[in-house]
């Protein structure tokens, strides 16, 4: 039986909400991970939320029923990702990705081994003859798992987007097509919002920890306060973005 637009959008909404619920549960579980995880659970809470949301969106699209009547019609249109992706939002996510790459590269270069020998978890500041070490610092101890989660999430988002573009049209008349296109745009916004949370939330948390560590460096050099303000600015931008993208992830139909 052919799906009507209402059936399809209701099913997509239910799957998206299921993904959202699972994502929140996973994020809460990871955020409350044992202390022995040294904050890695907290760093991976947002990527877990985004991955579950992406799974929900993909499941909603995959469960759209295929045309099964005796006579089937299709228009000779070429649907592309660009047709459904909100451009401003996509540019915003891309900007955050660049910012995250630059931030984690910089913190990775400045990172050092902590007192327990864990590489990339502490900031060592040489101030004249005095060498001090402070942490936790978002070096590769944190940035590698975050980067792996982000890459996994981006791959999942790519697959979800392909599913949104490629699934069959339930109807071919003008009004039905417009409603179907709107449903696909909503799914595309949910996917982008998940990508936004995926990148922005760990970046905001890491930047806050970096600012805290930089604030504890006891050195008269102007470099550390400047770096601390820069980290706070990154945290503010990423934190604001994470809030906006979370709102979009919950209600992707809004503009």
């Amino acid at each position: 039986m052919l799906d009507t637009n209402n059936d399809a959008s209701r099913r997509a909404l239910l799957w998206r909400l299921a993904g959202l619920g699972a994502g929140l549960a996973a994020a809460v579980l990871l955020a409350g991970a044992p202390a022995s995880w040294l904050g890695r659970g907290l760093a991976l809470a947002a990527p877990a939320f985004a991955l579950c949301l992406l799974a929900g969106v993909t499941a909603g699209e995959l469960t759209a029923r295929v045309p099964a009547g005796a006579t089937r019609t299709a228009s000779l249109e070429v649907r592309t990702t660009r047709s459904f992706l909100p451009r401003r939002m996509a540019r915003w996510v891309a900007g955050l990705l660049v910012l995250a790459a630059a931030f984690f590269t910089a913190t990775g270069l400045a990172a050092d081994t902590d007192d327990m020998g864990r590489a990339g978890r502490s900031l060592t500041a040489a101030c004249g003859d005095l060498v001090s070490s402070t942490g936790p610092w978002p070096g590769r101890f944190y940035s590698v798992p975050i980067a792996l989660a982000v890459l996994l999430g981006l791959g999942a988002a790519g697959f979800a987007m392909r599913t949104v573009v490629g699934r069959g049209r339930p109807v071919v008349d003008g009004a039905g097509r417009a409603a179907d296109d709107e449903g696909r745009r909503t799914s595309a916004r949910a996917i982008l919002a998940a990508c936004g949370v995926l990148v922005a939330a760990p970046l905001a948390g890491s930047a806050l920890f970096a600012a805290g560590a930089l604030g504890r460096v006891d050195c008269p050099s102007a470099l550390y306060p400047a770096a601390q303000w820069a980290a706070l600015a990154v945290a503010a931008v990423a934190g604001f973005s994470a809030c906006v993208f979370t709102a979009y992830a919950v209600r992707p139909g809004t503009r």
């Binding site: 045309p67 089937r72 299709a74 000779l76 070429v78 649907r79 490629g166 069959g168």
Partner: peptide, 20 residues
């Protein structure tokens, strides 16, 4: 009706639309 260089739908998309 379909001019030269006009792009046809991708195979997967057309198959999904027609349920084939």
């Amino acid at each position: 009706a379909l001019p030269a260089r006009e792009r046809l739908p991708p195979v997967r998309q057309l198959a999904a639309d027609l349920g084939l």
